[in-house]
Design a protein around this nucleic acid. Structure first.
Lengths: 374, 374
DNA sequence: AATTGTAAGCGCTTACAATT
DNA sequence: AATTGTAAGCGCTTACAATT
């Protein structure tokens, strides 16, 4: 299929780039003059004679001149690039992995929209959480490779540890959704996980639920974000005088088994809270499989799953964290730090938003507190 | 919420970077020696005395030296960066837009995995198709800003025209999924749209369908990729002696109306082919709404929707194009061009794969031809 | 011959000097 | 005073010269 080099017309060597020197020479001025004029900054341009400005601009246009952005950044010590480290989801064709890309995409979009307005470009590195050290080296290299700063979607303890070291060496790093929250009093953008839990609890309480079930993964160690969510709903359960029990489902590659479903089928619960997006969808699915109808005979509140609903399924009432808002906030901080020539800021909590769905009604008064960012 | 600058510890100025000169000085050698040794290339290192090598490495480690990748690329004229232009899906909270990020993510992943092995980093620019000229300038600037090359997810005719101009100026550009296929005999990675259509047709024919319906958008102009898919299935219908009619659904922001559904409800069809991913999902949804059960009383073949199925819905039998394969192929070509110091190659067709689902059976013999790339 | 340094240069920016 | 050029420098690489 590939036929490169066969036909002569595919053998054309790539032309040498047009440089500022070419433009200057053709316009009969020095490179300094050309540079100043092409900078586009009025304070520079106005000190040249109009016909000189014209000459230079014409020459640049004529030759198709484009500044080399890498060279341009060197003298000013203000690189036009920042790093964005996101997750790669292996080559696995798992449907959940595939969808998770949408979160990363929104994070990227949030950051990039702001960056563009500052003339900043993102260099994207991906890290596959399953491949501990493989692709990480390349990401590390670029984070410390002379960029203006880095926004890193944290992935695992070793990476977070390295990031903290680099941060205190003076690299401008903003961490997004760290796992070990308590280690990040500085430079992190964190979802308000406690509020996620209490919000879910308030929804279940408002629906008069009395027998709450918390759906989580069966794992030895529970990560801090989930712990906080659990604490949030536990507190609310206590206040609401509801019973509170835990249901475990297997982590992503696996699907819930009949044994997992049995617990649900006993109908001990009238309200469920699923800790994350995949759990939420799996819980909805599991309920339907055992004949439960969330929204009718049981309430279900999920997390980050408002975008998830399949056509014939009820939409899940969801406590959402806006990934694009997180991306934007991270970028905002990076820009601020850069302007201030600093590298530390106090970590920021992002408030979740309640996205009403069919699986649990949302009282009017809870709909108002949708905002949360500065 | 943000408290930057308040506590004194957030006021630490970012430290100046450690440069090669620092490392060299501390090791008592010239920058040339330090550079050669830290290049990591055996042919350079072996010509130095072992203790010199040690001195330099220790000094670099001691000072926490990281090479500035932008400066490093200048002298060699082999920049370590390429551009990847993908789509941005506005701020719209449309569920389809949200999911479409997953495609862009897979495209990115495909390219980046290969790039990493060559030490290449992607600079990502996004273009919002709805904002014609707004963000485009920034993307154009970086594409011609001194990178090794660019992979561009084509978006619209004006952009494609500009890309073709730049290509013939000598910029290394690989276009992905162009709209105006016939304008891209060179430097494009294109889905084999004709084969998508004929594959769908063969599936419907194999299911003994006789009254085929083609589901497309109602628009004045039909874009070339869709035209080819239509031609593919039309040809197959003729060969199979099936009738062939068109059903129109409204484009993405809108949902199918009752009037749109009426056509389906008349049950004139026993086989449907939906032209793209959004149409496929909408068609499945529409069928269910009028009481049709795809897979039982009607066959449905979609495009790029195998990952889409909601829990309680049948999975759609889909003709898929692997976006990560497309990304990988584009990257492969870029690397090849760079090695050969060329900038043109013959456009490459990517064969689709048949992903069996519940809405239309797939004969054994059609499952084999899953591969397609070099 | 083995080992290292000198120097030029990548493409740009900007302070400052020099010219009219 | 208005206009432009000179020169140094950003941080690096690599051909080549120079030293032992």
């Amino acid at each position: 299929m590939l036929d490169s080099g066969a036909a002569p017309k595919f053998n054309r060597p790539s032309m040498p780039r047009v440089t500022l020197a070419h433009v200057a020479e053709r316009a009969g001025v020095s490179t300094a003059t050309a540079s100043l004029i092409l900078s586009g900054r009025e304070e520079y341009i106005k000190q040249f004679r109009p016909d000189t400005v014209e000459k230079v601009r014409r020459s640049a246009k004529r030759l198709g001149y484009r500044a080399n952005l890498f060279a341009a950044g060197l003298p000013t010590k203000a690189p036009a690039f920042f790093v964005l480290v996101i997750r790669d989801f292996g080559g696995r064709q798992d449907i959940h992995d595939w969808h998770l890309w949408a979160f990363e995409g929104n994070l990227l979009a949030g950051a990039v929209r702001l960056a563009a307005s500052e003339g900043l470009y993102p260099i994207v590195a991906t890290i596959n959480p399953d491949a501990p050290d493989a692709g990480v080296a390349s990401a590390k290299r670029i984070v410390t490779g002379g960029v203006m700063g880095a926004i890193v979607r944290a992935q695992n303890p070793p990476l977070e540890k390295w990031l903290r070291e680099q941060l205190h060496l003076g690299y401008r790093i903003v961490v997004v959704f760290p796992d070990q929250i308590s280690n990040w009093p500085q430079n992190a953008i964190i979802a308000d996980n406690l509020l996620i839990g209490t919000s879910a609890g308030r929804l279940l309480a408002a629906s008069q639920c009395k027998r709450w079930g918390l759906v989580r993964y069966k794992q030895r160690t529970t990560r801090e974000p989930h712990q906080l969510r659990i604490r949030g709903i536990e507190d609310t359960a206590r206040q609401a005088g509801a019973s509170f029990e835990v249901i475990c489902l297997p982590p992503p590659p696996q699907k819930p088994t009949d044994r997992d479903l049995a617990r649900l089928a006993k109908r001990d619960f009238d309200g469920l809270f699923a800790l994350d997006s995949v759990l939420s969808v799996n819980t909805l699915q599991a309920c339907r499989r055992v004949g439960l109808k969330p929204g009718e005979d049981i309430s279900l509140v999920g997390v980050n799953c408002s975008q998830w609903h399949g056509p014939a399924m009820p939409s899940i009432t969801s406590i959402d964290v806006s990934w694009s808002e997180v991306g934007r906030t991270a970028m905002q901080q990076l820009i601020q730090l850069s302007h201030d020539h600093q590298y530390l800021f106090e970590s920021i909590l992002i408030k979740p938003q309640i996205a009403p769905g069919a699986t649990c009604p949302v009282p009017e008064e809870m709909l108002s507190d949708k905002t949360g960012s500065a």
